[in-house]
């Protein structure tokens, strides 16, 4: 059985958030990010905003960014696809940097998946011209910082895809 220690730990993600000055995470928790949610709620420097629909997260993030905060949207790829108009009008349309951390449901290292959520994830991002970084293990964690740097340099949204093939966030 694959040990969680070899995968992407929630601590690494939260550490990257802190390093990059994240002030708010706007999220809809899912089964893959449950433990991450608990860890985020424990951080005194971080405000977690529970949203009801993924499209809200980009809009809330825009308002926070205008106010000088550093928000992150934490959603799943299914919700990201539902949020197309919000990504267009709020994330891309604001001209402000934004990192969206997106659970890559259905992703496998083999490149073959029966899950259409995974099949359409990267084509969706490419259609919007949004750059993305794949993060699978703790060793990939520095890519999260790269995403923040790129978002800030381009004033655009950048996505971190969490290729959590083994549901490493679950305890």
């Amino acid at each position: 059985m694959v040990q969680q220690a070899a995968l992407l730990s929630p601590e690494r993600i939260v550490s990257e958030f802190q390093k990059n000055g994240v002030t708010h995470v706007i999220t809809i928790p899912d089964s893959e990010t449950n433990y991450l949610y608990e860890l985020m709620k424990e951080q005194p420097w971080l405000d977690v905003i529970s949203s009801c629909r993924e499209g809200e997260t980009m809009a809330i993030a825009m308002g926070l960014s205008i106010a000088g905060k550093t928000p992150v949207c934490l959603i799943q790829n299914t919700g990201m696809m539902e949020s197309g108009d919000s990504i267009r009008g709020m994330a891309l349309g604001s001209g402000l940097p934004l990192v969206m951390v997106v659970g890559y449901r259905g992703w496998t290292r083999h490149g073959i998946t029966p899950d259409s959520a995974a099949v359409y994830t990267e084509p969706f991002l490419n259609a919007f011209g949004i750059h993305y970084y794949l993060v699978e293990h703790d060793a990939d964690g520095d890519r999260i910082s790269l995403a923040f740097q790129e978002a800030k340099a381009t004033n655009k949204p950048v996505v971190v895809l969490i290729g959590d093939e083994y549901h490493g966030f679950n305890r």
Binding site: M62, G63, L64, A67, G68, P71, M90, G93
Partner: peptide, 19 residues
């Protein structure tokens, strides 16, 4: 703060929380 369907309220919430 418009720009996408039905999301102005959410953008205003973000602004209120940030300020």
């Amino acid at each position: 703060l418009g720009g996408s369907m039905g999301q102005t309220t959410a953008a205003c919430l973000g602004l209120a929380l940030g300020l």
